[in-house]
Simulated scan of single mutants.
Amino acid sequence: MTGSSRSKLVTWGLIVGALSIWEVGVRVGNMPPYLLPAPSLILHTLVQNFSTYLQASLITFGEALLGLLIGTCVGILIAVLVTFWPGLEHGVMSLAILVKSTPLVAIAPLLTIWLGFGWQPKVIITALVTFFPVLVNVLVGLQTITPSLLDLFHAWQANRWELLWHLRLPHSLPYVFAALKVSTPLALIGAIVAEWTGASGGLGRLMWLAYTNLNLPHLFAAIFILAAAGMLLYQGTTQAEKRLVFWYTSS
């Protein structure tokens, strides 16, 4: 058995073990479903309402991925601009920290009032959540270049665009994937929080309705979907990193 197989086996063992302890604890403690439903009841609820959760998941995941894409592109673009013009760094980072420090619960209702209950507020909130980790990590990757390599490119009389394309961007790829490992789960959180403030569909809306009706099996079913999606997206990002940044991950 390879190391990767053992790691997956251990992971699944921990998940199954935790769910088993949860199931036994609920049954032994005779916990009512409106306080803590058993995993078996949650899975039964999920299977019974599969089409509803599937439709809601597609809405939420679409908003999260689009917001992640926009946030990542904006973060990379700003990092490149700051690298070209270092004098912008203090002002740009101050503004970025200001946006990052503003609570989502304060921004999301305003965007819902201004833009309505469609997908636009959710995508904007998700982009705001995800762009800061990308900006910080990519900026570090673009700026921390080995001096000997930088001297070599200068000896070849490379201009700043050639430095960017052939040296700085390849060097920053591990930092990009490090940022994505943080931003990808945050994208799901951003979409859910935005849907709580007002939405016509999505997992966030289902969770809010379940919460207001104390329907915890439905609430936990949505949580299970989000947890599974977060794990899959993280693993997908890790696999993409291994394939695209092979010179870094194999060292």
Score class of each variant (00 low, 15 high):
W85A: 09
V16F: 15
H154E: 13
D151T: 14
T102G: 07
Q48T: 09
S94T: 14
S20L: 15
S148V: 15
S183I: 06
P86A: 09
N49V: 05
F132S: 00
K100C: 07
G118D: 06
A179D: 05
L216F: 08
L216A: 09
F224G: 12
E195I: 11
W12P: 11
A127H: 05
P103M: 08
T197W: 14
L95Y: 13
V28M: 08
L81Y: 01
R6W: 12
L81F: 06
V24R: 09
L169P: 03
T237A: 04
G67T: 01
N215C: 07
Y211R: 11
T102I: 07
L135E: 04
A38R: 02
I107S: 05
M1K: 10
N215M: 07
H154V: 13
P39D: 01
Y34S: 10
T130Q: 05
L173Q: 10
P121W: 06
N137M: 09
A210F: 13
G87H: 10
M207N: 02
L110W: 02
I21D: 04
L150S: 15
V10A: 13
S51C: 07
T130V: 09
L104R: 13
G62S: 15
A38W: 00
H44K: 15
G62M: 06
I70N: 04
G25Y: 04
Y234C: 02
A38E: 01
V134H: 03
